[in-house]
Amino acid sequence: MADIRNDGQSRVDIEHAELLGGDINLQIHSNLYWKSGPSMHEGAAFDNSAGIGVASRKSFVPSVGQGEEVAGLYVFTVSTPFSIEGRTNYLLPMFRPRVTIERFALISKYFSTAGASNGKAQRSYRLLSDRFLSKGNCVIREYDRLVGETSLPNLAAKNSYDFSIGEDADVVYKENVTLISSQALSSVSSSYHGTQGQIKTTYNVNLYIKSYKNRPFKLEYQQHVHASSVKLIEPRTNFTLENSAVKYRTTLAANEEKVLSYKLEVVN
């Protein structure tokens, strides 16, 4: 939906207009629902809601054409004439994209050193649209209730986007990182920093996750590591290393507990 405002005193008649993607506010209303079936997964679809202009030259509301990419921006054409009275907002209905959204609990951490930590998972969502979506506010509704609001950037078609809207009090974790070994490597010469020595350190990570929910749900774990080199030692089946981040995905049953572990080699 495009929100166009006339801040002047007089009515403005518009014969033809073009809207740039970054200038359009996005308002999304969703209905998420739990689907029970063989795979027990969650899904959702939500459309842009249609608006009605406050004052129009015609009895019908003009629509916005499908956006076209021009020099990295999306341009939306309004070919039907319309009018906006002074000091009035005009809500112009746009396209209706097919948008799917997946809900999951996310444990996202940044690795530092040996020690213990604990916390709660984040209420997270993964959004995917079949069309370009302009940046704007996104209101999340589940079971006909408002559960959160966030701001979305410009999103390319068929490109997923993850975001979180707060803690999930029913999913807690405890993590303990133990130093196993530390070894000095041969010095590395650099034209900018001179001769530097690197250290290879091996850690054992023990992770405990507890769900207090009375239903199954999807869970994702991410441990981000900033280092010259990162390696999983004795890789476990469910743990993967993607772009210097250790990741784990699973579905937790109601009130389930999980105890996990992996070994990590870090070079700095």
Rank of each mutant, 00 (worst) to 15 (best):
K35E: 14
N137I: 11
S129A: 14
S36N: 06
V267G: 09
I101H: 03
T237K: 04
A17T: 04
L155W: 01
A156S: 14
M40A: 11
L155F: 02
S211M: 04
S30Y: 02
T237Y: 00
T80N: 06
F239M: 14
P235Y: 03
H193K: 05
Y262Q: 15
P93A: 04
M94I: 05
K258H: 11
R5D: 05
S59V: 03
E102F: 08
L152S: 01
A71N: 09
V172M: 13
L91E: 07
D170M: 09
T88F: 02
T201V: 09
S191M: 05
N48R: 03
M40H: 06
A254D: 11
H29E: 12
R236F: 00
N255W: 09
I101W: 02
L133I: 14
K263A: 08
P235F: 01
A184L: 08
N268L: 06
Y262T: 15
Y221Q: 00
I101K: 02
F104W: 01
I28Q: 07
G148K: 01
E234P: 05
S189W: 09
P38H: 04
G86H: 02
E175Y: 08
T178V: 14
T250H: 07
N159D: 08
K218E: 11
L179R: 06
L185I: 09
E175W: 02
R215D: 08
R96W: 10
D23K: 01
Q198W: 04
V64D: 12
S190N: 10
D130A: 08
S160D: 09
F132R: 15
K174M: 11
I180N: 09
L128R: 06
S261V: 14
F76M: 12
I199H: 12
E257T: 15
L91K: 01
F95Y: 12
A71R: 08
T237H: 00
S182N: 10
S49P: 07
G72W: 03
Y221N: 00
Y212F: 14
